[in-house]
Design a protein around this nucleic acid. Sequence first.
DNA 1: TGCTTATATAAGCAAATTATTATATAGTAA
DNA 2: TTACTATATAATAATTTGCTTATATAAGCA
Lengths: 114, 114
Amino acid sequence: MVKTSIEMDKAAMVLKLLGDKTRLTMVKLLENNDCCVCEFVEIFQASQPSISQHLRKLRDVGLVKEERRGQWIFYSINQDNAYYPFVEHILKQVPNQDHKLKELEANGTRITCC
Amino acid sequence: MVKTSIEMDKAAMVLKLLGDKTRLTMVKLLENNDCCVCEFVEIFQASQPSISQHLRKLRDVGLVKEERRGQWIFYSINQDNAYYPFVEHILKQVPNQDHKLKELEANGTRITCC
DNA sequence: TGCTTATATAAGCAAATTATTATATAGTAA
DNA sequence: TTACTATATAATAATTTGCTTATATAAGCA
């Protein structure tokens, strides 16, 4: 714990952010992969605005960053974020989700961008 | 992670439960202390029904248990709960809150029950 | 017994969250 | 240029959450 410990209200805020199955899975995927929005739309079978809004929440606290590549926007973990060490610990407790990306490929659903 | 890892939707559910400053602090206090409801009411300066409702959510997932002692009801962590190992890891990342109980004593606000 | 204290629960409401629908922006390609 | 694709944002609707107020239950005590 020492001096680097996260404050209580910040911790609660981050936990609430991760306390949603979609966002938790997103962050877990981003731990090992850069993903573009269309992949998330496929994986979660959700509407594009819904996915964008989840990503925005993650972006707003600085946990992920975006990068345009041509017409696609890729998201990745922002390891420099102050909350990342805390998040990392939590993610370690949670099962790997990379099979969700594999399934996209298998389906041939993995789209142009990837 | 191995075979004991928590499922994604369960993990999200637990994170959401802890994603509230009051509940997170409660659980952190209960990590080292048994507490009665009136202590929580004092500590959080919240109404008694509000505290009871937070405790109920924690009880509903089995993370805490209650025990009547005379006219008071004491809450404690249920270490046997399936989610406890996950919760424990998170609590380790969060600052100790025991000073909140100390302050009750100092104030003389620490009531009859304790 | 009746009164008081501690706690839980139910009902109602306001605030916050999530999803949907519609529209805007930016890139790519004809 | 126009048309199309990928994404973001805004407005709105639906759902969930957390608080308050009121009431119920259970223990202790006169």
